[in-house]
Design a protein around this nucleic acid. Structure first.
Lengths: 111, 111
DNA sequence: TCAATACTGAAGTAACTGCTTCACTATTGT
DNA sequence: ACAATAGTGAAGCAGTTACTTCAGTATTGA
């Protein structure tokens, strides 16, 4: 479920924009309203809402509306899914390098 | 250097495409030529080269041409940079939750 | 030397992104 | 009740992306 390629597309696409990363960064320090997310960004509120929708569609952020305020939170499981995808490939590469190192060391022993 | 926002844009953008992730996945199992990368993909070689250029510009992949063959390798440091960005935000969030838990536990003690 | 291999580069195109503005709705404080 | 606040939704538009095809250049093996 978390390794669905389409979901990974959405997550990495969401993280590819600096404004959206800034929003995620802000949310990593605690929940915030749409206006609070918008405050440090040099763009219209409408644009911020559109970025927020991208983040929500990707699963990285969850929002809940109470009264007229929409409160946003990070979804750490989604972050972990993206993190894991990268981590698994990097580890595969590094394990491969280790095996290669072992092989070279063994060849050396035998000369 | 590794936390340059523009570089992160390029890396996450690069990872946002399933064909490019498939290429990274292939490379995590060892170096490959352009044709080898192209082989499982249902698109022209030209398209694969374009994807490869995106990966190279992002720093995730390094290539070297010997004779007529261009050999591609993963750049694990770049993978780690993307991984770290996500990890830091997730940990910030989780530390915050922990502190919140401590605070609630303490309040309970005092009643 | 000649054909096959392994790319490379440019041009074209359809779809998608990241904004903008403007008009609008729902909620809240006085 | 009314004004201010908080957000929503649609249309439009410039720029980018993900391909395609086609024509080309090196390199290599027979």
């Amino acid at each position: 479920m978390l390794h669905d390629p389409a979901q990974l597309d959405l997550m990495f696409q969401a993280l590819a924009d600096p404004a959206r990363r800034q929003m995620v960064d802000r949310l990593s320090r605690g929940p915030a309203s749409v206006s609070q997310l918008a405050e440090p960004l040099a763009m219209s509120l409408s644009a911020v809402v559109q970025h927020l929708n991208v983040l929500e569609a990707s699963g990285l952020v969850r929002t809940e509306k109470v009264g007229r305020v929409r409160t946003c939170q990070i979804e750490p499981q989604a972050l972990r899914a993206a993190e894991n995808w990268i981590n698994e490939r990097r580890l595969a590469w590094e394990r491969r390098l280790d095996r290669l190192g072992d092989f070279l060391a063994e060849s050396k022993d035998q000369t």
